[in-house]
Design a protein around this nucleic acid. Structure first.
Lengths: 182, 182
DNA sequence: CTCATATGAGACATTCGTGTCTCATATTGG
DNA sequence: CCAATATGAGACACGAATGTCTCATATGAG
């Protein structure tokens, strides 16, 4: 009987990624519950979006944890990270377009923690001579987010195959589009 | 006395990029006109967004024209294209997050034209042996959009310097993050 | 079984954005 | 100068989404 809060969040994320302007009623239907119950669990749309934000941050941190981003060669760490991050790409795409989250007075400090972690990863790769140093770690972090979101959209719209999503991001981010001279 | 339609669109784009949920009244104020006049020029919010979409497509096509994307080595063409596209990155960022544009029954065919042009560019580079062939031209096109949007956001939020925006996108898209062995 | 609790369905008022209208004022063209 | 036109300010009604409430029903615990 008890509503699975996590499942509701998943359904909401899945719908809001496609239509960020979806009604609370539509969200409720997508989650298989009534609008009343949805409002009982999340006091208003803001609370729902905040919960999705927390979920997104938690998933990203869990992915970073599973990928052991602080261990081994940085390029390999990036590959593992992207692979682990892929299931959360849809949710990330929604949060990415929800620019309202970043204009308020206080933004979730979880993003800062996550950013710091990724920035440290890229900096580590630079100091090890694995990454080029003319692209700042901050930019590489932003690019990682952007490519993940682009990949999620491309997959959703059927432009690229889901199975290629992860390698697409990784290969472009690390190797770029130019053909390598061996 | 006549309102500069183009200037209104610029102001609207500048505001809506930051706050896609901005009110028509806010848009009007940002453009320095009254809500009544705004509604006289654009019959409703939909019409405004459509006009912004047309503007964005036109700017992208103009950029592709100026960059002569069909001439010379493909990597150089990409460099020129990104440089010419940069001023429109903010507008692109707004349209990118306006996923409502792509869910309706008919979407602006301008995007298809633009996509085809960029896909052709990347395919040309592949056939010339300049670009790697394990990343599809479609994905490279999507990645180009995504990186442009990421760069625009990063600049807006002060994370990267505006002067580096263009080279950031170009260098990452073409060369990737890995350090090149000479 | 019985009771407490959670849910669904629906009604309700409120808020907010929107589109339209009017009228006064300012600007432009003849 | 005068007329035509465009603009600004404000009022107005309409619609949509939201948050809250009630009540009937279903589920689970003891």
């Amino acid at each position: 009987m008890a509503v699975d809060r996590d499942q509701v969040l998943r359904a909401a994320a899945s719908l809001l990624m496609r239509r960020s302007s979806a009604t609370m009623d539509e969200v409720a239907r997508a989650a298989g519950i009534s609008r009343a119950t949805l409002n009982r669990q999340f006091a208003g749309r803001d609370a729902l979006v905040r919960a999705l934000e927390d979920l997104g941050i938690a998933e990203c941190e869990a992915a970073a944890e599973r990928a052991s981003v602080d261990e081994g060669p940085a390029p390999d760490a990036v590959r593992r990270l992207v692979r682990e991050l892929e299931p959360a790409a849809g949710l990330l795409a929604f949060l990415y377009s929800e620019n309202q989250l970043f204009e308020g007075d206080e933004q979730n400090e979880g993003w800062a923690r996550l950013d710091a972690r990724l920035v440290a990863l890229f900096r580590r790769g630079q100091e090890a001579g694995e990454f080029r140093i003319d692209l700042s770690p901050v930019w590489l972090t932003e690019a990682l987010y952007g490519l993940l979101v682009s990949a999620a959209w491309a997959v959703y719209e059927g432009r690229v195959a889901p199975k290629d999503s992860s390698s697409n991001v990784t290969e472009l981010l690390l190797g770029g589009a130019l053909r390598r001279e061996k």
